[in-house]
Design a protein around this nucleic acid. Structure first.
Length: 273
DNA sequence: CCCGGAACCTGAAGGC
DNA sequence: TGCCTTCAGGTTCCGG
């Protein structure tokens, strides 16, 4: 599942293939992947434009174009952006192909059709509502304390809220909570100052380590060259249902928090002391 | 504004 | 073998 480290890896590894390249043709194999504008307008406004940059904001990938428009891609759960030879057949489940003027094709593969592309004048209407970037300097323990203060929502849900903190999803929320010994159902307001500082450090350390490992390939996440990341090899609790905790040996449990699977160690992450 | 739950979507895996 | 259920979860929308 692409979260901040996976999306950051996709951006970094896509950049050398696409920067400065002109889009020569757009093929939509499933038009529903384009949220706005219409499929027809999307194609005509994109063809002929050069890609001048790619950024990452939360889990969004804004591509800047020579026209001044922005192509904003969200991979959601199962999307991947793959670089192929433009003469090659696109991989199975490819929903859209951007052909570039260097003999390559950028394929948007997405088995579950959750992924989204938008072509917009102003990218801030989409990404402007996001919370702070957890790896930037402005994300301080004080800011995290402010975000969690007086909130009765479970910690697992709070960490996944994009308008509070941008880029964290289910896997890395589980990992950060385990590293801090916090049960996923603890409320935001129940955390002590000490726990908040520890959580702040854990979030940054875990996200940085996952970027160094090129993301986690739990299911269908692939890097642009088709290879997988290795960050999931570092997971302590995420997707380790019934397996022994590396710290105390207790079987990892799974509960639903806001309809999301949440993995945790019942002994290392007690709900009450 | 705060909070919780459903819907979207489909392949893989497990149970009977 | 084959059918049925569950699981995966980022985002958006709707309700109280």
């Amino acid at each position: 599942m692409p979260e901040l480290p996976e999306v950051e890896t996709v951006k970094n590894e896509l950049l050398p293939y696409v920067i400065g390249r002109k889009i020569t043709k757009v093929t939509l194999l499933w038009e529903g992947i384009v949220k706005e504008p219409s499929a027809e307008e999307f194609r005509s406004r994109l063809v002929g434009q050069a890609i001048t940059g790619i950024a990452r904001r939360g889990k969004y990938l804004p591509f800047s174009l020579s026209s001044g428009d922005a192509l904003i891609i969200h991979l959601k759960m199962t999307g991947s952006l793959l670089i192929k030879q433009n003469s090659a057949e696109p991989p199975e489940y490819t929903r859209a192909v951007l052909y570039l003027d260097n003999d390559t094709a950028l394929c948007f593969r997405d088995p579950r059709k959750f992924g989204v592309m938008r072509l917009v004048n102003d990218k801030d209407t989409i990404i402007g509502k996001l919370g702070p970037e957890p790896l930037e300097a402005g994300f301080t323990p004080q800011l995290l304390a402010q975000i969690l203060a007086k909130r009765k929502t479970p910690m697992k849900a709070l960490l996944c809220e994009q308008h509070l903190i941008a880029g964290i999803g289910s896997m890395y929320a589980d990992e950060a909570l385990f590293a801090t010994g916090i049960h996923p159902l603890r409320t935001g307001e129940s955390l002590t100052q000490r726990e908040i500082e520890s959580l702040h450090r854990a979030i940054r350390r875990i996200l940085w380590a996952a970027i160094e490992n090129k993301g986690a390939s739990v299911n269908t996440y692939y890097r642009p060259d088709g290879t997988k990341g290795t960050a999931h090899n570092q997971f302590k609790v995420a997707h380790r249902f019934k397996q022994p905790c590396f710290v105390c040996g207790t079987p990892i449990e799974r509960i639903k928090v806001r309809n999301r699977g949440s993995y945790f160690c019942p002994r290392c992450q007690p709900l009450s002391t």
